[in-house]
Structure formats: C-alpha cells, structure tokens
Amino acid sequence: MPQKQVTIDVGDGAAIPSRKDRGLFSAWWLSFIGAVAIICYLCLSQPDPYWRVLKFLPDGILVTFKVTILSILLSLIIGLITGLGRLSRNRTVNLIASTYVEVVRGIPLLVQLFYIYYALGRVELFSNLPPLSAAVMAMAICYGAYMGEVFRAGIESIDKGQTEAARSLGFNRIETMFMVILPQAWRTILPPVGNEFIALLKDSSLVSILAVSDILRRGREFASESFYYFEAFTMVALVYLIITLILSKGVSKMEQRLNYYERD
C-alpha cells in the first residue's frame, strides 16, 4: 500500500479562502463585513477620535504598500536566484544558497532590521542609508530566503519529463527553465507567494521602529499626541485586517484563473 502523503501547510499570512467557501457565512465574509461594519459604526457614532484617526492613516497605508511591494519584488528576484542556486548541481553555488537560507531563517526579522539599519549604519558604505531603503533591504533579504524555498519547491514539482522533452528538442538549460519549467511552476509558486506577500505586509509593521511612517507608525503618532491609544490602535488593527482580507481574496481568485489549462 502506498502511504498517503499528508501535507500540513501553515502559512504566516491570512488564510487564503477556499474556492468552495462561496457562501456569505464563510469565515472570510464574516471577518470582512464585521471589520467594515465596526469601522463604519465607530466612525459614525463617535466621529471625534475614530474618524480623525481614520483620516490620519491613509499616508501610512501608502507607505506600507510601498515597503511591501518594493520588498516583495526584490525578494522575488532574490528568491528566484536562491531557488535556482539550491537546485544547482554546482556544489559551491548550492552551498552558498543553502547557507543564506539557513542563516536568514535563523535570525528574527526584527533583529535583521536593527542590524541593517543600526549596526550596518556604523559602516561607512551604509551610513547614509535612508530608513525606507534599509527597511526594504532587510525585508527583501529575509523574505528572499523564504521565496527561495517556494521557488525550489515549485520547480521541483514539475515532472522531470518536461525537462527531458525540452532538452531533447535542443533547448539549453536556461531556455528549458524559463520557457518550460517556470511558466508551469508559477501555478504552484503563486499561492505561497501570495501568502508570503500578505505575511510581508503584516511584518512590514515592524519597520515603524525605523521611523518609517507606515500604518502602525501613523497610529502611534496620533495616539501619542492625542492620548487616544485604544481608539488609534483599534483602527490600525481593523485597517490591517481589511487590507489582508482583500489581498487573500485576490490571491484566491488568481489561483483559480491560473488553472486554465487543467481539465477538471
């Protein structure tokens, strides 16, 4: 009897809604409508702190997105290189890529942020690094390691016959990777990348300690000026929740569309 393989996938991001959960009473809809309703209720019933907090946050939302998108783009590039490195038959390349993954995964992101901004700030070359660049760099290096594993797994999920067929036609290894393997691996890669994107968006709140005015930082600024701590952080939490919920829905939709050539 072949043993049934069970995979338990626990991501860092918001749960990607299942395609089957279409009903209005799925966890996603409950959270989403709940969050929107609470915001509306609070802003209408007590506009004084709540509406004011909400108006104070959009600048931060933009910064959060900026950090997230720049980091994810950079981490995708790092991840692709790392993933290919991990699959490389060249021992040295393989070792470098694997060591990078080990080291980065073993150090907390917050420590990496401090390290790049404060510790490396002591080094001449990095002394003028603006906080935003340091933040993006740290996030990209950290998530690049995770992305590397995602890419590796995605590439490995493609049947070896595909490589053999492409090579037999005369494609070289690079052409095979970029024309045959990656276009297919993308479907396996995208859902976890979406997950990482959402996780990264949440983790980007850590950059507020580097004086980057993201959502959390804006909330803190508002709170420390007005002493409305409860109100400010309630709104911050709800705004994060709504953003991640929308993104998780988006990833789910994208996943569906990527299955176009599969016969169901």
Binding site: G161, E164, L169, P183, Q184
Partner: peptide, 20 residues
Amino acid sequence: INAIRQELGMVFQSFNLFPH
C-alpha cells in the same frame, strides 16, 4: 549537445507535451 539533439527527435512513453 543542444545542436546534436536538434537532429534527434525524441518521443517518450509519457508524451511529455508542454501543458501550458
């Protein structure tokens, strides 16, 4: 080898068409 392989058509047991 890539040039040599262009002279050699290969057909596999499992077809290995590109599904995308």
